[in-house]
């Protein structure tokens, strides 16, 4: 066994996997990765099951050090500068930390969460079949809370398998698709039109329970209290102030605000990656379209292993350079500060 030591880490970073659905009838929220596709990509690159436990890393920088042996990893999701002992590491490729080496990550760019998968997964005691952190319910392993500097993850020693990359379809920068309902009849046609025609921003007060949106006020027809009913990932509820909240994997299992619409399954991860302050729009689709997209999304998750390719040195150079964005590092003072903290913490 090797260890991966968390040398430094920011808030909103935790061990997540496919979550623990099945007990929502008892009020237990499913938790799990915000962006399941990125989790699956990172895991697939190191030969894990797609929804094995990995580290979900929030917007800030982080550093991890291999201990007692080499550790093979892969990164996916929100890109950021990444290097192992000074060697640039590309996203959507596997890489190996030799014993004692440190993986250093900068701030997230163009997204909110990155996923760090480790070959063989993370050792822990599953509760309800999952290691995913749900701090409020005291669940999550090896730590039932977000990760902190100094934490240690027990992991498998690197197998020495050849490194790989993965060929992925382009992620469109398109509107977030929604299905109206279940309570869209609590809103006028004008309110629904305003919801679709407006530009929205994700508020900085958002978290794994819900993303608060900032935009025009969406008015209710009959007030903002309904009798609580069940929620799903992507439920868009509208509280009294008319500013929608999109429910995320740590949501309450029931809620008492009218839900105007629901983000479709295929777009949920893309929505979760919208960082605070970035503008986006919604687009309504039909049930037939949404379910066709959900099936295509399931097919993509299922066929990720077919997209693996050997990592050649040419790929490494080109992709690593673009992903590492070395120039960005040099000019970004905040990033540079993180870098230094990480390095001093590991030396």
């Amino acid at each position: 066994m090797s260890k991966l030591i968390v040398s430094s880490i920011g808030p909103a970073s935790s061990v997540q996997d496919g979550g623990r659905p099945g007990s929502q009838r008892y009020g237990l929220t499913p938790s799990g990765a915000m962006d399941r596709l990125s989790l699956a990509i990172a895991n697939t690159l190191v030969g894990n099951e797609p929804f094995a436990a990995a580290v979900e890393i929030g917007p800030f920088g982080a550093a991890f050090t291999a201990h007692c042996g080499a550790v093979r990893i892969a990164l996916s999701g929100a890109s950021r500068s990444a290097d192992i002992a000074g060697r640039p590491v590309a996203f959507d490729s596997s890489a190996t930390l030799a014993d004692g080496e440190t993986l250093t990550l900068g701030f997230a760019k163009g997204g909110a969460f990155s996923y760090l998968a480790i070959e063989g997964g993370i050792a822990g005691e599953p509760m309800f079949g999952s290691l995913a952190v749900n701090a409020r319910a005291g669940l999550g392993s090896p730590y039932p809370r977000p990760l902190q500097s100094g934490d240690e993850l027990q992991v498998q020693s690197a197998s020495g398998a050849a490194e790989r990359r993965i060929e992925l379809p382009e992620q469109p920068d398109a509107p977030i698709r929604i299905l109206f309902g279940p309570q869209d009849d609590e809103f006028s046609e004008d309110s629904k039109k305003l919801f679709l025609d407006s530009e929205w921003k994700v508020s900085a007060t958002s978290d794994r329970m819900g993303y608060r949106l900032e935009g025009p006020v969406i008015k209710h027809l009959h007030g903002h209290n309904i009798v609580s009913d069940g929620t799903v990932n992507g439920s868009i509820q509208v509280p009294g102030n008319g500013q929608p909240i999109v429910l995320m994997p740590d949501r309450g299992t029931s809620g008492g605000y009218p839900k105007i619409a629901t983000v479709i399954t295929a777009d949920f991860g893309r929505f979760a990656q919208i960082s605070a302050g970035r503008a986006f729009r919604f687009k309504a689709v039909t049930m037939a379209e949404a379910q066709a997209e959900a099936r295509k999304f399931a097919e993509l998750l299922h066929t990720l292993p077919d997209r693996l390719r050997p990592l050649e040195s040419l790929d490494l150079n080109l992709e690593a350079l673009s992903a590492a964005n070395v120039a960005g590092h040099a000019v970004n003072a905040v990033d540079a500060a993180t870098w230094q903290v990480a390095e001093s913490a590991t030396s």
């Binding site: 299905l179 309570q183 929620t231 799903v232 439920s235 399954t265 997209e293």
Partner: peptide, 12 residues
């Protein structure tokens, strides 16, 4: 039968 997205139905 109210759609709660593409993967859940609210039976009200």
């Amino acid at each position: 039968l109210l759609p709660s997205g593409d993967s859940a139905i609210t039976v009200e």
